[in-house]
């Protein structure tokens, strides 16, 4: 983060864009200043604030992992003014980057555990670096189960990586959609129902989930039925953010600022202030 003036973004160049789904693009961004580029370390779960100059800035989770390379990757779903502008940019365009912000998944702590990743729609974005981190440190973790749901097959965000994820040793990828199409031979079920069906064991396991509020709500119920305790369930919260620094006083849930104290919380932490959402 730019400690001298945290509101001034680092300048960066959009290297490439690719369509992930009809409404989501994969953006690869490189910070212009080589020193900044070297310093810009981050961990799975952290986010950055991207600027489209003239239209504003918005927070996005970093979907890359820091140690693999210096290019920053984002999955941006077109939903408002800033995301629209980002979608319109061509490679070579200048953007701004502030960050990294927020806390991260305690992957060190999960070592030795079986990991269950449960993501819905664009909620897979913060989970991608977790999956890649685990695959890169395969020996450190137990079984990896990935349950990824979306509205339609076209909305499954990281489809090009599914083969890698599914074929990695000790990992299993379960896809599901609300509505299939002619080519879809997989599941047509809601994510919480898939959790119920697959019955992952809570023993020595950590469940990490992210997705739309309604999916999270029912997924949590299913996980608890399977015996997961609140400290075994980890999620990321979403709230409107502006500054990323706990200063603009907008993204609080109870006395926690999602941009600083979050976005990653265990259910144990959240249960104290979930009502205050």
């Amino acid at each position: 983060m730019n400690a001298e003036n945290p509101f001034i973004p680092y300048l960066a160049t959009l290297l490439s864009t690719a369509d992930l789904t009809p409404d989501t693009k994969f953006l690869t961004v490189e910070l212009d200043d080589p020193d900044v580029r070297d310093r810009f370390d981050y961990k799975p779960g952290q986010f950055a604030i991207l600027s489209a100059f003239g239209l504003g800035e918005a927070p996005f989770c970093l979907v890359s992992v820091s140690y693999r390379g210096r290019q920053l990757e984002f999955a941006v779903r077109r939903i408002g003014t800033v995301t629209n502008a980002l979608h319109e940019l061509e490679p070579g365009a200048k953007v701004g980057v502030r960050g990294p912000f927020g806390n991260y998944f305690s992957l060190e702590q999960y070592k030795g555990s079986n990991i269950i990743i449960i993501g819905g729609g664009i909620g897979m974005a913060p989970l991608r670096p977790v999956i890649n981190f685990i695959l890169d440190h395969r020996a450190d973790y137990g079984d990896l189960l990935i349950i990824n749901g979306a509205r339609t097959p076209q909305d499954l965000v990281f489809a090009p990586e599914f083969a890698t994820w599914a074929q990695a040793p000790g990992s299993r990828l379960e896809l599901t959609v609300d509505r299939g199409d002619a080519d879809w031979t997989g599941r047509e079920a809601l994510v919480p129902d898939v959790v119920k069906e697959l019955k992952p064991s809570a023993e020595n396991a950590i469940a990490i989930t992210c997705g739309p509020p309604i999916m999270i709500r029912f997924t949590l119920i299913r996980l608890k039925e399977l015996g997961f305790t609140d400290s075994q369930i980890v999620t990321t919260l979403e709230m409107k953010m502006k500054c990323g620094l706990g200063k603009c006083a907008r993204c609080n849930v109870g006395d926690k600022y999602i941009c600083q104290d979050g976005p990653v919380f265990t259910l144990e932490q959240i249960s104290k202030f979930m009502e205050q959402f």
Binding site: G56, E57, C243, K247, C248, A249
Partner: peptide
């Protein structure tokens, strides 16, 4: 009260990132 909003403001081609008061 110190809550604020941050957005861009374009005037005659010049771009500013502006902070303004906002309220919860």
């Amino acid at each position: 009260c110190y809550c604020f909003d941050i957005r861009d403001y374009i005037d005659e081609g010049s771009i500013e990132r502006v902070r303004s008061w906002e309220s919860c």
